[in-house]
Design a protein around this nucleic acid. Structure first.
Length: 488
RNA sequence: GGUUCCUUGACCGAGAGGCUAGGUAGCGGUCUGCAAAACCGUCGACAGCAGUUCGAAUCUGCUAGGAACCUCCA
């Protein structure tokens, strides 16, 4: 395997050479969505980021097991206060089962991911299907003395843990100061310290998902599922754990504490975190209510959007920024991505039509190596895209008749686009390829061939009529030197 | 208040000591029956101040502005 992939490890905040534990196998775990709402643009970022990593690792020759969970436990409560909301009201009236909510939004999530051309993970475990594993995990932490029971709930003893290990290793926090400050504050609560977190929580009456345990009727703590399921499917040590930056603390910090408390050592070697998507400079998030759902993008049904944006435009938009940078959303930025992506797609389509010559007369670069280097540098997709644009420019020159390409070089172009644009970046150029579509394309080609004849006869009235009519149906007709191109 | 980080041209964004990405928009041209596309050229930036250096967008310090996390969040 010839690879020198460097990835940014949150543990020490620098790029490190990626060396898997058991080459050629790679285990990666990514925090998936909590399925209680429609997926929004923010959800698309980790999915796409780690989809890229998944694809790149596989392309590099690894055998990857990619686990991404569905969180369907812990957040679901009866919304007693939001009485005026029509949907909530209806849900209450119809007595919807929590699993119906889970089912509904899981399907919505999968549909959106599918549209974005995000490959399904190898395993997609659900928290609700791993209650036993989580209970065992809790018991192990109790047995090792790092948790205590209190009124039916079980809490992780952060102070005790921190005496032997470093709680805060991932987020760069010094918990001792916090411990000093909070020691006297919370005597009445069932938790000993405010920093302690729940491993098992006794269910209050409004909690509708609950399981029997030796401690209480309740449900597992929020951080536990990832530890338990990661260990179950990837082992006591595995390579990569990913998620959004907002999960670093407390979620991933707690995961580390849990696995160390249970196993005596940490599980994950490389922690990777994608940055946030912002809107007007502020994080797009569920709690802030400033999110736009993926469906709203696909249909254009949001006041901030002037039109509908295809899933591939969204994907391209996200890949034009590095995953560790914030990405500021605006309709204007999205329009720029849409046009840019179209430019690449058109270049790719033209590439298929270029006839090879004996010699290459244009300047070419080793784009394959350039793209590979960019990917190996912590998945620098914006650089890969800039190389594709560079190559596209050359393709256009040749297509324009201002240069030639030999068969070897032409094949190199095709391979680069095929590999990087289609396979690695996952940017589909075709929206579909049914028989209907094929026939319909031929019909349009026929009409435009007739128009070409009209043009040759200088029948401008007819040729303009065809173009204008087609335009009114949404087609864009472009004349080339000796033919035409069209798109919708 | 604590921890971490950011500020690049009209907009979105790479880069991380000299080689000053890329896209979108703008401007000028070539091509064209017209239009569009394409191609060529062009405009235009490193928040401010001070320092280190032969040389700084890139390193250091200060100032201003902003963000994330510290509660669920991708």
């Amino acid at each position: 395997m010839q690879h020198k992939l460097y990835i940014h490890n949150t543990l020490n905040r620098q790029k490190e050479l990626f060396e898997p534990l058991n080459e050629p196998f790679v285990g990666m775990y990514v925090c998936g969505p909590t399925v209680y709402g429609d997926p929004h643009l923010g959800h698309a970022r980790p999915s796409i980021t780690f989809d890229i990593l998944f694809r790149w690792l596989r392309y590099s020759g690894y055998k990857v097991r990619y686990v991404r969970n569905i969180t369907d436990v812990g957040h679901l409560e009866h919304d007693a206060d939001e009485g005026e909301d029509k949907i909530a009201k209806k849900a209450r009236l119809e007595q919807i089962e929590p699993m119906e909510v889970v089912q509904y939004y899981t399907i919505r999530y999968h549909n959106a991911m599918n549209a974005l051309n995000v490959l399904p993970p190898s395993i997609e475990p659900r928290a609700s299907g791993h209650i036993l594993e989580q209970m065992e995990y809790v018991q192990k932490i109790i047995d090792n003395g790092f948790a205590y029971e209190s009124e039916g709930s079980v809490y992780f003893d952060v102070e005790k843990y921190n005496q032997k290990h470093h709680y805060g290793i991932l987020s760069g926090r010094n918990i001792e100061e916090i411990l000093e400050n909070t020691r006297s504050l919370d005597g009445q609560s069932e938790k000993r310290r405010s920093v302690d977190f729940a491993l098992w929580k006794k269910a209050s009456p409004e909690h509708i998902m609950r399981w029997q345990s030796k401690w209480s009727d309740g449900f597992p703590g929020w951080h536990l599922e990832c530890s338990a399921m990661g260990q179950k499917y990837l082992g006591e040590r595995f390579d990569i754990h990913g998620g959004g930056m907002d999960l670093i603390f407390p979620h991933h910090e707690c995961e580390i504490a849990q696995s160390v408390a249970s196993l005596g050592h940490s599980t994950v070697r490389y922690w990777m975190h994608n940055n946030m998507i912002t809107i007007n400079g502020q994080k797009m998030g569920k709690s802030l209510g400033n999110f736009i759902t993926l469906d709203e993008f696909f249909t254009g049904s949001h006041s901030l959007l002037t039109e509908a944006y295809s899933p591939m435009t969204i994907r391209f938009f996200i890949l034009q920024a590095h995953y560790r940078s914030t990405l500021d959303f605006s309709n204007e930025a999205l329009m720029a991505s849409q046009k840019g992506f179209l430019r690449l797609v058109e270049a790719y389509e033209r590439l298929q039509k270029i006839v090879p010559s004996k010699e290459t007369s244009v300047e070419i670069k080793d784009w394959n190596t350039l793209c590979m280097d960019a990917m190996n540098d912590d998945l620098n997709t914006p650089i890969v895209i800039s190389h594709l644009f560079d190559a596209a420019k050359t393709i256009n020159t040749v297509y324009d008749g201002k240069g030639t390409l030999s068969e070897t070089d032409l094949n190199m172009f095709k391979a680069v686009f095929r590999t990087y644009m289609i396979d690695i970046l996952g940017l589909k150029t075709e929206q579909g390829d049914s028989k209907y579509l094929d026939s319909y394309k031929k019909a349009i080609d026929l009409i435009l061939t007739l128009r070409l004849e009209a043009k040759q006869n200088k029948n401008w009235a007819l040729s303009d009529k065809i173009r204008d009519e087609l335009a009114s149906y949404g087609f864009v007709v472009k004349d080339t030197k000796d033919g035409f191109e069209w798109s919708l």
